[in-house]
Design a protein around this nucleic acid. Sequence first.
RNA 1: GCCCCCGUAGCUCAGCUGGAUAGAGCGCCGGCCUUCUAAGCCGGAUGUCGCAGGUUCGAAUCCUGCCGGGGGCGCCA
Length: 552
Amino acid sequence: MARMSEPDPSSPGQSGPDPASGLRDAVTAAARNFSGDQSLRPSLESSPRPEMGDYSSNAAMVMSKSLGRPPREVAAELSALIEADLGDLLDRTEIAGPGFINLFLADEWYRRAITSLADGGWKVPPVERPERILVESVSANPTGPLTAASGRHAAHGDAITRLLRATGHEVSTEYYVNDGGTQIENFAASIAARMTGAEPPEDGYRGEYVSGLADRAGAEGIGPDELELLARAGVGWMVESIRASLIRFGVEMDGFFSERSLYEEGLVERGIERLREAGHTFEQDGALWLRTSEFGDDKDRVLVRSGGEPTYFGADVAYHADKVERGFTRLIDVLGADHHGYIARMAAAIQSMERPGISFEVQILQMIHLIEGGRRTKMSKRAGDIVTLDELLDDIGSDAARFFLLQRSSDRTMDLDLDLARSQSSENPVYYVQYAHARIQSILRKAAGSGRECGSDGPTRVAVDPSEKALIERLLDYPAEVHEAASRLAPHRICAYATEVAAAYHAFYRDCQVIGAEGEGLEASRLNLCRVTGETIKRSLALLGISAPDRM
RNA sequence: GCCCCCGUAGCUCAGCUGGAUAGAGCGCCGGCCUUCUAAGCCGGAUGUCGCAGGUUCGAAUCCUGCCGGGGGCGCCA
């Protein structure tokens, strides 16, 4: 069951008491006063079943041990305090099970909740200490188009960025372009081979796009023997096309950071020199090593090869040092599962920079398997046997792709059945959520067309329907859900939340007539509820980079 | 050998900083459009939460050990 908003000093409603925080405050205050423990944070959640009331708290159970009293006995006294505090907003309380306090709220509480939501009660309060965060994601080699797997990285990196921004952080996003090293030489050689009608080298790139690059190189007058030029131009074209794919997917990177530029601007040298000065390096066998084992890595790592050339790791250390130089205090790298062995050494490298207050975390995204024709598609960029992000978007569209790629926990490998994604596109869960939004907009259009009041709602005497209660409870969860998803870097929670809101709305739609609802102020109140629901769905989807169509 | 992720309904997966009778989607069976969008709703069937111990008033959730699946352990990137 979703949690209600935590009390937050920065979110007092302008227009009277906010029912949600009022409820939580009442329970928390009662628990703290009764136990004398000011750090107590009792739970307050929507009850799993109607007979268990509207909200439930474990307050009595968490303090019974320290008080040395049976939980149900404590619960009885606690509920008296809560009842006194909430007055008419509370119908009654019940003690249930091992000592839960079940709260049965008055209709008035729900009516006020709608008003509060409409007045901005949905707003997500900013975190107490906003951070300057750099999210690095995708960073796929610029030797080929983005794959569907890269799509998971792009969607995830983008969604956590939106979540962190929504909770008040300052976030920049970057794509690290590995435009140096032997892979680029192979890439250039592959283009050159295609220009002369030859097969690419053994460890070269064989995708069709390489022939396209060869044609383009020819058209621009680059010769097959000008490998350096081919490398630069080829990478440039690939980055251009990668950026286009990302934008098509709704992902706009704040920057593309070139590995090569690290060398050209002397940053690699500088970064490594700094580590050397800090005394965390040593020379052995002609190579320069970083003592990452002093900071938790299982062995030391080479920064500069015996031939004098920095390793990939050396350059990446310099890149991360540069991130710190630019003032970011929290670095988040979104990496593939195959890079998990890399975490310890980079974490160690950052510690060896001796810059306190810098946090570094790696989000490992597990692999994604594309299933086609009942078997896994190969995902080798070199062989060119890949499903590209563009092809995925052609198949199922950006919204569905986003939802599919985000709805699973990131630390889980996922099977994405392309045949299924295509054939069931109209059964896709994202349409379920979007449809609720479209339905709402349809009602609001109709209401506006007949000049009905959608805004201010007069108090009504009509009983609040159970489906309205359930919907309101979900809507009140929004700020807490966003904070939870952001702090755990878990956008899949928002997928689940959006689905819950949509389900609650569909049930409300079934049970409650909106336009023409009889009873004083009832229609206006329900129109208000529709409006707030639509906005909540739209905001939730926006956090995932998914659109909320007005018509379907 | 060491490290990381996973094991929950027929399938794909939520839930896992401990709470009441473990959930969703898809699939399956049966119902609902003369009123606001049926891309919807309602009802039904299906579970040793991998196994075994432990901690706790209470374990899918925390600890330990196994079993099974996947990934990683370069002076590659």
